[in-house]
Design a protein around this nucleic acid. Structure first.
Length: 130
RNA sequence: ACCGCAGACCGCUCUGCCGCCUUUCGGGGAGGAAAGUCCGGACAACACAGAGCACCGCACCGUCUAACUGGCGGAGUUCUUUCGCUUUGGCGGAAGGGCAUAGAAAGUGUCGCAGAAAAUAACUUCCCGUUGGAAUUGAGGCAAGGUGGGUUCACCCGCCUUCGUUGAGGUUACAGCAGGUAAAGGUGAAAACGUGUGGUAAGAGCGCACGAUCCCGGCUGGUAACAGUUGGGAGGGAUAAACCUUGCGGGUUGAAAUGCCAUGUACACCUUGUUUGGCUGCCGUAGUUCUGAUUUUUCAGAUCUAUGGUGGGUGAAUACUCGGCUCGCGUAGUCUCGGCUUCGGUUGGGAGCAAGGGGGGUAGGCAGCGCAGAUUCCAACAACUGUUGGAACCAGAUAAAUGGCAGAGGUUCCAGCUCGUCCCAGACGAUAUGGAAUACAGAAUCCGGCUUAUAGGUCUGCGGUUUUU
């Protein structure tokens, strides 16, 4: 049963700032991903830790931002098993940030497609080789 | 019934699947504004003799309140609408809105355009005085002529006349000087009280009558602001959302406040210890010695040594029923230099070590933080605001939960098949079906307000229009 509990969320301020300094990134419209191999301390909690963000610049009210975050979170929650299998196959522990970069609020179907694209595009074992 | 205005209130519902946060494991889980962060408090830390200055805020009165730049009620003033009266200037009533509503009579500053002038009153005008020349008038004098009288003439006196001369003075306008005046100047939002009359050189609250305004006092009404009335006095433009003055209030910083917590890293500095203790009960294991049993092997007991477990005690000090969790769960007790020495030690310094204190860094946790309370409702008692009892409300996240998807219904609007009623080219009501809309907006320590945003709906009051009785 797909879930999304506290250990799977990226909350450490330190980990987030290090993600900004030296993370790999790619775009899966309408989403942008920044990711990095996580520290052993975080890895002990969960193999993958995710942070979802929606910029205030594009969505002024908190209500609009909250809804988009919830939709992204739901899409990730329902599809994350596929992502976990892929990560496990390449034997990685990662933390990643998902930002919503579209200027307008898109329907849920498009967000869901974006998350699917995100999982497909993730480099995975190529990184391990390199 | 519809429309408009004002006030108060509500702020879509249900089902399925999959989730999230919290929990005492039963449950519980966004708002009227959770928003803006504009006021006021609670609470916390730091500061704090007293007074003054500076700075900031507030400013009609009463009342409510923990408090407020808040609520409610009132006063004054001003504007709008409307009605009535009217001497056409206004006056009075009703409804509603605005007021940063202390002081402009302490001082300083400022006052666009227009206007002579925007504040010691200057200019024009008007008026008195004086000077100058001009015009006009002109008493009188002189001269000449005429004439009357006195008279011989001379001369004297008088009268009249002159484009004659002289001429004090008057009048008029002009110019200069020295004053008086603020009535006139028509512009402006505003012009130094208004109207009348007296007065004056001309004028003026300069005097008087009536009226308006302001200040001080008395009386009446009102808790008060204030209103009415009365006596005396005053002439003073506006602006304090210019400085300022007066009165009152304010210590500063805000939950990123503040308090607490263990581990790990490096360690300035300070204090203490390194003089004491290292012992011992019980149990297990191995060994030494002795005693007894025994032919020996071996067994039992005692003693000593080593070691392990578990208690007690000692020890400078922390804790073990520790701590939020994990790890961890005891440790320093030495060296060196000098003095004394009965050679056993003792005493002083230094280094090291140990424990505690301690400042700073990193990333966290707990408390603050909510079954709480200046809360709301009801009842009783006491009495004008309290007490007692009962009930209601009951989120607690922290890169931040309270949701996602699908479906059904509700409400409103538009289109519309059909049906019904009536005063039947229409209006109203019901309604299959289709379409659209369903707002503003997300807690972050907590309360009391204010402000702003808001689809749609409900109720109350007032006004207008229409219909029926």
């Amino acid at each position: 049963m797909p879930s999304f509990t506290r250990p799977e969320r990226l909350k450490s301020r330190k980990a987030i700032s290090s993600l900004f300094r030296g993370g790999h990134s790619f775009v899966a419209y309408p989403l942008r991903v920044v990711w990095k191999e996580s520290s052993p301390y975080l890895a002990a909690m969960s193999r993958v830790q995710v942070l979802i963000s929606v910029p205030k610049r594009n969505f002024k009210t908190a209500v609009a931002r909250n809804r988009l975050k919830r939709q992204i979170r739901e899409a990730y929650r329902l599809q994350k098993q596929e992502f976990y299998d892929k990560i496990e196959a390449s034997d990685l522990n990662i933390s990643l940030m998902v930002s919503y970069i579209a200027k307008e609020a898109l329907p849920y179907a498009e967000i869901e497609a974006g998350v699917r694209k995100l999982i497909r595009k993730f480099p995975g074992d190529k990184v391990k080789l390199g």
